[in-house]
Simulated assay, not measured.
Amino acid sequence: MTTASSHEARSKGPDDEAAPRDVVLPFVGSQATVRKTGMAFPADLSQRSWERIGTSLREFTNSSAWWLADWLLFGEATYGLRRYREAIDRTGLDYQTLRNYAWVARRFEQHRRRAGLSFAHHAEVTSLSAPEQDYWLRNAEQRKWSRNELRRAVRAGLAEQRETPRPAEAAGVDKGRGRATTLTIELSAGQLEHYSQVAAAHGLPVDKWVTQVLDAADRRIA
Rank of each mutant, 00 (worst) to 15 (best):
V28K: 03
S30C: 12
Q31F: 10
Q31V: 14
Q31H: 15
Q31T: 13
A32C: 02
A32Q: 05
T33H: 13
T33S: 13
V34K: 05
V34W: 09
G38A: 06
G38W: 01
A40W: 10
A43C: 12
D44H: 06
L45A: 05
L45I: 07
S46T: 13
Q47P: 10
E51R: 09
R52W: 00
I53N: 03
G54I: 03
T55Q: 11
R58Y: 08
E59G: 00
F60L: 06
F60H: 10
N62L: 06
N62R: 03
S64M: 06
S64N: 08
S64E: 09
A65H: 03
W67M: 11
W67C: 11
W67H: 14
W71D: 11
L72C: 11
L73E: 00
G75W: 04
T78K: 13
L81W: 13
L81Q: 14
R82I: 05
E86N: 15
I88A: 06
D94Y: 07
Q96M: 15
R99H: 14
Y101F: 09
W103Q: 15
W103K: 15
V104K: 11
A105S: 01
A105Y: 02
R113Y: 03
R114L: 11
A115W: 10
G116Q: 05
L117Q: 01
F119I: 03
F119H: 01
A120E: 10
A120K: 12
A120Y: 05
H122M: 01
A123L: 04
A123Q: 07
E124H: 03
L128P: 03
S129G: 04
P131H: 00
D134F: 07
Y135F: 07
W136Q: 01
R138V: 12
R138G: 12
